[in-house]
Design a protein around this nucleic acid. Structure first.
Length: 418
RNA sequence: GUGGGUGUAGCUCAGUUGGCAGAGCACUAGGUUGUGGCCCUGGUUGCCGCGGGUUCGAGCCCCGUCACUCACCCCA
């Protein structure tokens, strides 16, 4: 038997209703906030991700699905969506007609990590990005929109963490102060953190090894090093969140893993996913558009882990399951022939209809109708055919009505819709 | 990449010191000749993950391997 690839999964019909519900809720909400959908390809030149995500990140170093195509160009299955959206923004010169663009996209990402709960090698994200707006109001609104989605989906057990990473103006000062501290505590740090303290000291703040946490417990907070502009920006974001009654906490450990983030960064965490606490994360990346060859345009965005969201959204499956309205129990060849024609008409009339073509006994057809939770069973047997009628049984009340075969579909429609 | 746990019927899982491969659910037929759910009776379902080894004999012991899973790392 051929099995699916390690770390990949099938989303089965039993689950897809929930996925659709979440996707539809997100689409409707984002469209109301002025976002429009963009659908970039899943395959891009490797260079795009190297330049946007950063050479020194784990994603680029060891998690990308990269391979040469027949011409020898290095291609990569996207490990995240932002790079592609930025590339598209630049390539199509979207900034020219109107630099302010709000876009969302939903689709699969690929990272070759060791699979575990809430982490797959092909996983799905809902992304939203805003270009051309530097204002902190946009930051706060984006966070509000994200929180609202979770509320609409009745997700409890989640909380918002925010932080500011500063800008090229103020981050070097903080980085220097942090590096000095790390240097002095080097012997307390784990191996990874010793390596990190040279390449990306911010990441040490995120380490979960107890001795490392201890070492950085009194580390300087980036918030204390923000330049006046960044500090004012961060203040406004918080102020507006408070005004909008969005509950959040400032988390100075919140250091995003991707190189391109600046200023506001945020994450939605949950306790319901084992070791995977982040369900959604995002932040501002004011330098990325320019870094990828576009004009200097600010931008901010977030990504929601759709697989993870699906796991924590619990909905009444009954309300999501689609039951057939009418189940046609046809007996004998002639009954089946008639049923086939009528079912096509009923389906086209928007009435969910199923037929059992097996020719088995009425009892087994009734059992099946019950199993698929049909609202009505239409019985087409010998005696009905003789009389030129069919019997419609209400499966809940057990009431049965007889319908003439003349104008059957029309009469059923009016009966069912009344 | 590193560690722990688990692989037996479609599903959930038993399986004794190594001795005929099991249960519940599901499926199916009948009890009820053309009427579902509850009940009763019968029936179908297995490369015991895969490969090797030990043994008269392996689902069980040993070695290897693969998969799943949880965790580390990192992230959504």
């Amino acid at each position: 038997m051929i099995q699916l690839i390690r770390g990949f999964k099938d989303i089965l019909p039993e689950e897809s209703a929930l996925w659709q519900h979440i996707e539809n809720t997100a689409r409707a909400l984002f469209e109301d906030f002025g976002f429009r959908e963009i659908r970039p390809p899943v395959l891009e030149k490797t260079e795009l991700f190297k330049r946007s995500i950063g050479e020194d990140t784990d994603i680029v170093e060891k998690e990308m699905y990269t391979f040469p195509d027949r011409k020898g160009d290095l291609l990569t299955l996207r490990p995240e969506a932002t790079a592609s959206v930025v590339r598209s923004y630049i390539q199509h010169k979207m900034y020219a007609a109107d630099p302010i663009r709000k876009m969302y996209t939903i689709g699969p990402m690929f990272r070759r990590e060791r699979p575990q709960k809430g982490r797959y090698r092909q996983f799905y994200q809902i992304n939203a990005e805003v270009f051309g707006e530097a204002s902190p109001y946009i930051d706060a609104q984006l966070i509000f929109m994200l929180v609202s989605l979770f509320e609409k989906l009745s997700v409890t057990d989640s909380n918002v963490h925010i932080n500011s990473l500063g800008c090229p103006e103020c981050r070097p000062d903080f980085r220097k102060a942090l590096s000095e501290l790390l240097e002095s505590r080097k012997k307390q740090l784990c191996e990874d953190c010793i390596r990190r303290s040279e390449r990306n000291p911010l990441r040490v703040l995120d380490c979960k090894v107890p001795s490392c946490r201890e070492a950085v417990s009194d580390a300087p907070s980036i918030i204390d090093y923000l330049c006046p502009a960044c500090a004012a920006h961060f203040d406004t974001v918080q102020e507006m969140l408070v005004k909008q009654n969005v509950r959040f906490e400032v988390d100075k450990r919140l250091v995003r893993g991707l190189d391109y983030y600046t200023r506001t960064t945020f994450e939605i965490q949950t306790g319901a996913l084992g070791a995977q606490s982040a369900v959604a994360g995002g932040g501002r990346y004011d330098g990325l558009v320019e870094a990828l060859g576009g004009p200097s345009q600010p931008a901010i965005g977030f990504a929601i882990g759709l697989d993870r969201l699906v796991e924590i959204v619990t909905l009444n499956q009954e309300s999501l399951a689609k039951h057939p309205m009418v189940f046609i129990a046809a007996l004998g060849d002639e009954g089946i022939r008639n049923a086939w024609l009528w079912s096509n008409d009923l389906c086209m009339a928007g009435i969910r209809t199923e037929v059992d073509f097996s020719g088995r006994s009425l009892k087994s057809l009734m059992k099946r109708a019950d199993k698929v939770n049909a609202s009505y069973v239409m019985i087409v047997g010998e005696s009905e055919l003789k009389e030129g009628s069919v019997v419609l049984r209400d499966m809940k009340t057990k009431e049965q009505h007889t319908f003439s075969m003349d104008n059957l579909v029309e009469n059923l429609k009016t009966f069912l819709y009344q």
